[in-house]
Design a protein around this nucleic acid. Structure first.
Length: 258
DNA sequence: ATGGTAGCGCTGCTA
């Protein structure tokens, strides 16, 4: 089972690149973020023709998340259970059961700058995610949370821990919020395979950051124990960040024997 | 050298 996640930064602008990558990487499940589409504009037929069932949760213009699966897709749920209407409109969370795994695609709020209301909303959103997991999932089952967390878990996941993004993405409260989710019963799958630093998944478009190696690892696949112990391989596909009209994120995938 | 690019959509916001 190959499970992938990719912040595509507009599916309309990136559809050709996504189709190309599906043919190349052959994921069984792909979670996408920042589709920037309303549900009515989601190109479900394009993906169906490639053998994927789909679920999309989007309001157009900003955010938007999707799940593609060629191993079945049932029980899609948009947003958190019991979530406020305002948060559902933000369209940052979508779950479905695919091939016996409860899969969620997440687009964690950016937070902009520490100390702002956006930063506080990011921390509140992460706590809401943790509560949702605790109330609706069992860590002894197969659960995968895939997406753009907008948090670099460790200093080795940042090109320069001191100058990163006005201290968001690396601040202690953000990292603690992520740790709290892990402590519920999830593992950062990529770190079961690699210990190295500077293995990034996102690079700012500006100032040649990709070619200068200034990035962060903020795209994660968190898995419960039943999946972690069957993990075989993981990769951030940096080649997908190159070439014509790339997203600013590279896709991450994991291979699990299930 | 305190900048820069990309996407949406038409003005400035978001990242």
């Amino acid at each position: 089972m190959r499970i992938a996640t990719w912040n595509v930064n507009s599916l309309k602008a990136r559809l050709g690149r996504v189709e190309e990558w599906l043919a190349y990487a052959q994921p069984d499940i792909l979670c996408m973020q920042e589709t920037k589409l309303a549900d009515a504009a989601f190109p479900a037929l394009t993906f169906h023709a490639l053998g994927y069932e789909t679920a999309h949760h989007g309001n157009g213009r900003w955010n938007g998340v999707a799940i593609l699966s060629r191993v079945g897709l049932t029980d899609p749920v948009a947003g958190f259970s019991g979530e406020r209407e305002d948060d559902i409109v933000e369209s940052r969370f979508l779950s479905a059961t695919c091939g016996g795994i409860r899969v969620s695609t997440v687009y964690v709020p950016n937070g902009r700058a520490a100390g702002t209301e956006h930063y506080e909303a990011k921390l509140a959103w992460l706590e809401q995610l943790r509560t949702h997991l605790a109330e609706s999932c069992d860590p002894e089952t197969k659960v995968a949370i895939c997406g753009d967390f907008n948090i670099a878990p460790d200093d080795r996941d940042v090109w320069d821990a001191t100058s990163a993004h006005g201290a968001t993405h690396v601040s202690e409260p953000e990292r603690k919020a992520l740790t709290a989710i892990k402590e519920w019963g999830m593992t950062d799958a990529f770190r079961l395979v690699y210990d190295d630093d500077r293995l990034f998944s996102w690079w700012d478009y500006r100032a040649g950051d990709f070619h200068q190696g200034r990035g962060m690892r903020i795209d994660l696949i968190l898995v419960t124990k039943m999946l972690a112990e069957r993990l075989r391989f993981a990769l951030i596909d940096r080649n997908a960040r190159k070439g014509k009209l790339p997203s600013d994120h590279a896709p991450l995938f994991v291979d699990i024997d299930v």
